[in-house]
Write a protein that binds this DNA or RNA. Sequence first.
DNA 1: CCAAAAGTGTTCTCCATACACCCATGC
DNA 2: GCATGGGTGTATGGAGAACACTTTTGG
Lengths: 232, 232
Amino acid sequence: MTFSYEYERPGLTVDCVIFGLDLESASLKVLLIERDLEPFAGMWAIPGGFVRIEESLYAAAARELKEETGIEGVFLEQLYSFGDPKRDPRGWVVSVAYYALVSPEQHPAQAATDAREARWFPVNQVPRLAFDHAEILAVALERLRGKLTYAPIGFELLPQKFTIKQLQRLYEIVLGTKLDNRNFRKKIFAMGVLRELDEIQKGVPHRAARLYKFDQKKYRQLIKQGLNFQLQ
Amino acid sequence: MTFSYEYERPGLTVDCVIFGLDLESASLKVLLIERDLEPFAGMWAIPGGFVRIEESLYAAAARELKEETGIEGVFLEQLYSFGDPKRDPRGWVVSVAYYALVSPEQHPAQAATDAREARWFPVNQVPRLAFDHAEILAVALERLRGKLTYAPIGFELLPQKFTIKQLQRLYEIVLGTKLDNRNFRKKIFAMGVLRELDEIQKGVPHRAARLYKFDQKKYRQLIKQGLNFQLQ
DNA sequence: CCAAAAGTGTTCTCCATACACCCATGC
DNA sequence: GCATGGGTGTATGGAGAACACTTTTGG
């Protein structure tokens, strides 16, 4: 390794795959923006942009997320870096991809800086995407499905207060399986990471379900003790 | 996202955390190089270097691995990208870290381009490292331990032909646990990813153990069928 | 023949699964 | 009172964990 100025430098971007859960349509969605600028103007893409100097990768991802979609304060984790020399027609641009988990009702699609429009698409009905964004989305989906079974990140896709049935549907939708409600309840309660609230659902035309919260404190204690969250 | 030349560009490096298993000393080791150049000259570091234009990230990692240690043709996978603006005293340098798995007897430490020396260190006895390499190593270790339990990457750390006991020791060493040999055998055989060879160990002062090979074909069939490798 | 590691079965416990009915509420 | 989803218990099978002795080989 020698001094860096002897070497060509790539452009560096971050891209944020934003997942949201739509319980009504029972589908996992991804937030895309319609590009306003070349290259790929008019095409749909994962929101993202160039990293600024003196900015960490995480900070850049969080900034782009906010600038392009208005979303902030959500789960955001690095996914993978994409550096195929041909991935960007403008030249050598490496992208560090992140993925975010939000509950869409709290984050309606919102127009953005350099995009015409932002819109939620079901993950299995996305249009053709700019750059290598189809590949990035595929990697993100795989990560989400994998991580969901051994880490309690599912809660990030739900409102703070949720019913057990909603949590179960979340797993069914993302993993594409059917789960037995009795067994699911047993398992999720046995983990001891839910705090039962004194509230129930409002505005449903049938018996209202009890609401729960994810208990981060209890979860942290559990991992310290070496126990691991494992669903399915 | 606009044209890239409006933005500052970072230096881009790859770093390769190289893990090797030493069955004799029953320890997991990492291959480090002693830096010959500033910054951090004389200090130990993870091998790595700048990515060249027109080169994919994987290709850069594989090239650096070969140039700096002579190792090639081994398991090599992207780990994580590190972009803290202060991580390199020379300025803004982002690093995409990879990790490699090798069997050290097949890869004795070997001097390299811009290093004084290369040496294997037990992972819990590494010297102070240059840059943020201690953090990179920690992330790599965590990944290795995590992945070992659900993916058959352990074989990459052993010679092609190995005994069941060696495989068991591998898991014990990396995961830091003790395993029951009868249960371990049952489980590993039940997976059906080992091919029994007509050979036995040579040169041991006691009963020689049968040798096995990892059967990649069978493994691929199994994942196609949806079965998953799960140990512990 | 002795040291050292290889190799082998059984029991028990617990967790995952399968499965069907009553309950509470809004309309 | 009825439709709709909420909420509950039990029986069974299978996998993981615990556990100790015999076999083989080289020296």
